[in-house]
């Protein structure tokens, strides 16, 4: 019951930021979808443009003849890669804010002086953000699906949207967990460190695609494991990749939980 009170409290504190986040991306979707029909009818011309680009560039950014001429390729190129990257930053921001901010401004003492365990506090905070994230991403994917039907001549790419939902959730969760861990270890600089991790892993992905000698870097970046490029081409994301990222995220949560439950919180 006390868990539910904290959970409700956390949902109430954070839902506004998710509403603004969702609205921002809905507007982005509204700006992009009406242009799809124009792009799709000029698929051949875009294919020619892409052919003139360096191979490495095309591979790095998943640009091919499907990029703009199919609805999933169009969404992936114009929206999803950006949304995925921003979801990482958003997750990181919320993760580092959820416990570190409360420790720094000492509002955590309110909860710690009540008959609730640190386990309940941690779980309620994580679960509330996870629920809001599920809701936000589900709304975005549904809006995207219905948007495709309303604004384009294409059918809703259900499989692609389903995978996108999974990828967005995993990316958000991964960096949310990292944010929490950094937040309970350090009293400041969490977002800067986390942002470096996001950018470096993003660059690893690009470098591994551009250069054969940097191919090994792909194993160090979640973007490789959760690449939506193959889904655009009708393939799938390997289930073991999904589990691998899930396990890393869970590992980060467990580490963050251990540090939070054991650390001293003085005034």
């Amino acid at each position: 019951m006390k868990y539910l009170h904290i959970f409700n409290f956390e949902v109430k504190r954070s839902y506004k930021i998710f509403i603004w986040w969702t609205i921002a991306w809905v507007l982005m979707i509204l700006m992009l979808l009406p242009f799809y029909n124009t792009f799709s009818t000029q698929g051949q011309e875009f294919a020619q443009v892409y052919q003139s680009l360096p191979d490495a560039f095309k591979v790095a950014f998943n640009l091919n003849e499907l990029s703009l001429s199919t609805i999933s390729g169009y969404i992936n190129t114009e929206l999803m890669e950006l949304l995925e990257l921003f979801s990482c930053f958003f997750g990181l921001y919320l993760g580092s804010r959820s416990i570190q901010k409360e420790i720094n401004n000492k509002s955590i003492l309110f909860l710690l002086s009540k008959p609730v365990s640190r386990t309940k506090i941690f779980l309620a905070k994580v679960d509330s953000i996870f629920l809001l994230s599920v809701a936000s991403n589900a709304i975005l994917m549904l809006f995207l699906g219905f948007g495709v039907i309303f604004f384009t001549d294409a059918d809703a790419p259900v499989k692609y949207l389903a995978y996108s939902f999974v990828v967005l959730m995993l990316m958000f969760t991964l960096y949310y967990a990292l944010g929490i861990l950094l937040g309970v270890i350090k009293d400041g600089g969490t977002i800067a460190i986390g942002a470096i991790v996001i950018i470096v892993t993003f660059m690893f992905n690009i470098m591994s695609k551009i250069s054969d000698s940097a191919d090994f870097l792909k194993y160090l970046t979640p973007y490789h494991y959760l690449d939506l490029g193959p889904v655009v081409s009708g393939q799938s994301i390997a289930i073991e990749n999904i589990f691998f990222i899930l396990i890393i995220a869970l590992g980060l949560f467990v580490l963050g939980f251990r540090v939070f439950t054991n650390r001293d919180i003085d005034t």
Binding site: I6, S107, L109, S113, T267
Partner: peptide, 24 residues
Amino acid sequence: AAEGGLYEDLTGKQIFNYAEKLYG
């Protein structure tokens, strides 16, 4: 606590209601 221990963006009433819930 000597300092802190309160949510600055809540009203006193909201804090007391939340405390009552947590104390059951």
